[in-house]
């Protein structure tokens, strides 16, 4: 555990909490992609199956449980409790276009051809593209609420910090996991355009609106 990894994990947690609080306080999930949230839940479920088979540390297990519960909670709020506020006609990304190729790729490129390993690989690949329905939704409506952009910034920062963590681990421990690194880089690159808008607009007190 190094500081980049820790801050990355906390940034990830902060993102999830920002989103949950936004939905809870405003009693509305307008502008949030339910499809991205379903994909993130699927990511956590398939990745953390080792919660019962492979104990790493109390920190690791507790964080896994928190991520699982909070992401499932977000899906519950969106599809049940506040379903009436869910913007489904703007959330039209076809998730099978992500899930099917990612599923195929995880069978082809993995560390080990075993069920748990393939599911872990699937979750790593899926996470890298799971934000696309949300970004697609913002590009359709042309804007995002400021709180939603804070959520996206925290979520994007998490994987960017993990990249720094991997560079650090490579030099200090000789550690590298090519699958995680390549997927993590793809994931971070997808946020670059958003990061630019966030820094040039949201941080200057303006709302995130895409140029027409």
């Amino acid at each position: 555990m190094n500081v980049f990894r820790l801050v990355g994990d906390l940034s990830h947690l902060l993102a999830i909490i920002i989103l949950l609080l936004k939905i809870w306080k405003t009693r509305s999930c307008a502008g949030v992609s339910g499809k991205s949230q379903i994909l993130f839940s699927l990511v956590f479920i398939t990745r953390y199956l080792d919660l019962f088979t492979n104990f790493i540390s109390v920190y690791n297990s507790v964080m896994k449980i928190i991520y699982l519960v909070t992401s499932l909670g977000t899906v519950y709020l969106m599809y049940f409790k506040f379903k009436a506020t869910y913007d489904s006609n703007h959330d039209t990304f076809r998730i099978e276009f992500l899930v099917v190729p990612v599923g195929g790729l995880s069978f082809l490129v993995n560390h080990d051809f075993t069920p748990l390993e393939i599911l872990w690989t699937f979750s790593i690949y899926l996470e890298s593209v799971a934000i696309l329905p949300q970004l697609f939704m913002i590009s359709k409506t042309g804007e995002a609420e400021t709180i939603t952009s804070h959520y996206l910034f925290a979520l994007g920062s998490y994987r960017a910090l993990y990249i720094v963590n991997w560079v650090y681990r490579y030099y200090t421990e000789g550690f590298f996991d090519l699958i995680a690194i390549v997927a993590g880089c793809v994931q971070t690159i997808l946020y670059c355009d958003f990061f630019y808008l966030y820094i040039t607009k949201v941080l200057k007190g303006k709302q995130l609106k895409l140029p027409a």
């Binding site: 990894r5 990830h12 790493i56 991520y67 000789g174």
Partner: peptide, 10 residues
Amino acid sequence: RKATHAKDEL
């Protein structure tokens, strides 16, 4: 250096 597995990460 051989690739290692990032299973200790979240």
